[in-house]
Amino acid sequence: MNQISKWIIYTIVALFLLAVPFIMSEFFTTMMVRVLYFSLMAVAFAFLASQIGLVSLAIPAFLGLSGYTIAILETREIMFFPYSAMAAIVVVLFVSAVFGIFANRSKGIYFIMLTLILGQIIWAVARQWASVTNGVNGLIGISTPDAMQFNVFGANVGFYYVILFTFVLIVWAVLALTRSSFGMKLKGIRESESRMIMLGYRVSRLKWVAFVISSLVAGIAGVFFVYFVGVMHPSAIDLDSSAMVLIAGIFGGVYSIIGAVLGMSIVQTLEVVLNAYTQRYLIIIGIMFLLVVIYAPKGLMGLIYKNKYMKSLYDKWYKGRKDS
């Protein structure tokens, strides 16, 4: 495929995404927003999973941290957007920096266990510390800031555009990161941690930075989550949510960031579409997941990358190689 047709495809996709609020129904736009903030979580997950091979179950915990920070600050009228969002990001960075110190000493199953514990601690605090988090009642009444509510051609679609641009920017940045020298070092750790130590790289520091970056992306997802849903509730960060991110990641392909986004889109879309027809939709999603794991262990993206052109894109996006 030549350069021109590639740009034509990019333009069509970009135009479609920009035009969504006008050519599609309001419902479709709402679902796009939902898919986008969940996909940010998937990106955070896939960045760690694909680059250093660490499976984190604490992704929703960081969404929860930033979401709860905003919800607490705004419902108590202490701070408002943009300061509340900044405070949320600072909290996320701080907690992930502290926790990263513990997490970067572990790998494999121990990393999964540590992040599981972190996720459960934050979930339990959200549930139990009722005087601050309002416990299982959740915090309600967080409204979307005016800065995210501007009109375009008379339609109130500001939120969609803000999250779309943030999303594209983050995905672009994360992809750029994976093919930078930093990304190469991370992949080195994934392949052989001991060899990287022997070569003189400060492995635990690299892992720490990657962990903080992943948490930051999840934290940004939390900002959009809380402003869009307007409710912060412990169920958003429970074990089910961690499992949902994990399932979406495996669905789309653990070794690909684009794959995680695709997986999350499919899982979320299926949930909403099937829910309208049957109350047993979770079974259908489960069976599909089973099929993917058996027949396409690298996920849907694994299937797609069998295509030569897509493979060259993969190399270019993740490994920095030019079209071969």
Partner: peptide, 10 residues
């Protein structure tokens, strides 16, 4: 689930 409920209502 409160988040799922909001989606359902939407």
């Amino acid at each position: 689930d409160a988040e799922q409920l909001t989606t359902s209502l939407d």
